[in-house]
Design a protein around this nucleic acid. Structure first.
Length: 423
RNA sequence: GGAGAGAUGGCCGAGUAGGUCGAAGGCGCUCGCCUGCUAAGCGAGUAUACUGGGAAACCGGUAUCGAGGGUUCGAAUCCCUCUCUCUCCGCCA
């Protein structure tokens, strides 16, 4: 959520910065709504002030017959207040909805661009492997090795659900454990295990609602939502809180499954594990002092990269352009891992700085000075990493000519002695 | 699922025959005084949001006692609905 005062005082600038995201003007109608609100507010509050003082007088008067006329007068005033309040509530609701649907301002360093094609390669690590034989995509490897059962996943639930078996299930768990151990042991994150369903307020706090309801799985009774990422429950840990400045930065990492409707992607990535309705992910979340968020995005991205480096998986870091960053994000780096089976780079992590956008929605603050006003913290998060896609990358990069898959050295301690997955 | 109790400021905790309660008191915290040091003691201060005025310091208004609605000139206090917490019983991993 943007600062209403900022929009009020810098409407043109805000509009210009938002326009770099593409699409239509988003701030139209704000001025009118805002002014209407303040007019109603002024009028209503003046009447309330009057009522308060007169009611006070009535209260002090012992003989109520002396103030009978005042009582009648205030009865009218209250009626007027009620009408104004109702009108104000409507305007507030509109304004609030409006504010909740305006995306974040792109960061000054976010490259300007229209689409994915305008994203910028920041750096690369490792050499995309040229295998000395025809590389298979992971769905073939997984089925042939009997570790990924797409048909049964579909039978049990439906399309985009997969049953992992044996070494496949073990490999996914190994990856999750490696990531958690790395981030908690080496990078200073506290591990948390949050609820996988959240309420509406939490979804609104991080920006999924009210705009992206279609992307979510929703439970009817009670009205909960399945989390599309651990970002939601973990960022909301501190919703409505004023944090101690000395506690910042706060760093959490969490393993959770993630549930996404993937509405509007019917034709895309229909094969394999790339686009599932349920997938596993280890997420990194930080609450930081506003002056530190730029630097923290770099370190957090580095923490995610470290996983790929440990696994020996070639990747590149992309700075997403203004037209491609998410609704709540000011700046995002995507990590894209090399997949020999598909001869392309695929997103495996997304690391974002949200500035105060989420903190304002969720009211997460701190005080610069003991007596100072509360200010919003900055929030960041990044996948460290998406486990399913990491498994894909391991299978495709470590496949052998005979169809077996070697276990990367970093995972050996987690695989119970298994060094190679074979049929 | 059945029966009961409760939700007040950073924390604890008053306030239930409606009025001067943004809210006593205590603790904590901040500043000052005092004091070989520490502790104790003394004094002052200590919520948030919106809004009006002001360059600012700051001053004024409104709202907030779990959330929403109602009664009333006026509600932390009365009524209704919801949420959450706790205790007992049942059930259950």
């Amino acid at each position: 959520m943007l600062d209403m005062k900022y929009i009020r005082e810098n409407l043109d600038e805000a509009e210009r910065r938002l326009s770099t995201r593409g699409g239509d003007s988003v701030l139209g109608g704000f001025r009118e709504l805002d002014e209407k609100r303040r007019t109603l507010l002024k009028e209503g509050e003046a009447l309330k002030a009057l009522r308060n003082t007169v009611s006070d007088l009535i209260g002090r008067t012992k003989d109520k017959s002396q103030v009978q006329d005042k009582i009648l007068e205030m009865r009218d005033v209250s009626q007027k207040i009620k009408v104004l309040d109702e009108e104000l509530n409507q305007v507030d609701e509109q304004l609030n909805y409006f504010l909740l649907t305006v995306p974040n301002l792109p960061h000054a360093t976010t490259p300007i661009g229209r689409s994915e094609a305008d994203n910028v390669v920041v750096r690369s690590w490792g050499e995309p492997k040229e295998l000395p034989f025809t590389a298979k995509p992971h769905w073939d490897l997984g089925e042939e090795l009997g570790i990924l059962d797409f048909e049964r996943g579909a039978k049990i639930t439906g399309a985009r659900f997969t049953l992992y078996r044996g070494a496949g299930a073990r490999l996914e768990r190994a990856l999750i454990n490696l990531m958690l151990d790395l981030h908690t042991g080496e990078h200073g994150y506290q591990e948390v295990l949050p609820p996988f369903m959240v309420n509406r307020d939490s979804m609104q706090g991080t920006g999924q609602l009210p705009k992206f309801e279609d992307d979510l799985f929703k439970l009817v009774d009670p009205e909960f939502y399945l989390i599309p990422t651990a970002e939601v429950p973990v960022t909301n840990i501190h919703r409505g809180e004023i944090l101690k400045k000395t506690d910042l930065p706060i760093s959490y990492c969490a393993y959770t499954p993630c549930f996404r409707r993937e509405a509007g992607s019917y034709g895309k990535d229909t094969r394999g594990l790339i686009r599932q309705h349920q997938f596993n992910k280890v997420e990194l979340v930080k609450f930081v002092h506003p002056s530190q968020s730029d630097a923290e995005l770099e370190t957090l991205t580095g923490h995610a990269e470290k996983v790929l480096q440990l696994l020996g998986l070639p990747y590149r870091v992309m700075a997403l352009c203004s037209g491609d960053i998410g609704f709540s994000s000011a700046k995002t780096y995507d990590l894209e891992v090399w997949l020999p089976g598909q001869s392309c780079y695929r997103e495996i992590s997304s690391c974002s700085n949200f500035g105060e956008f989420q903190a304002r929605r969720a009211s997460i603050r701190f005080r610069e000075d003991e007596k100072g006003k509360p200010e919003f913290v900055h929030t960041l998060n990044g996948s460290g990493l998406a486990a399913g896609r990491t498994l894909v990358a391991v299978l495709e990069n470590y496949q052998q000519e005979d169809g077996s898959v070697l276990i990367p050295p970093a995972l050996l301690p987690y695989m119970g002695g298994l060094e190679r997955i074979t049929r």
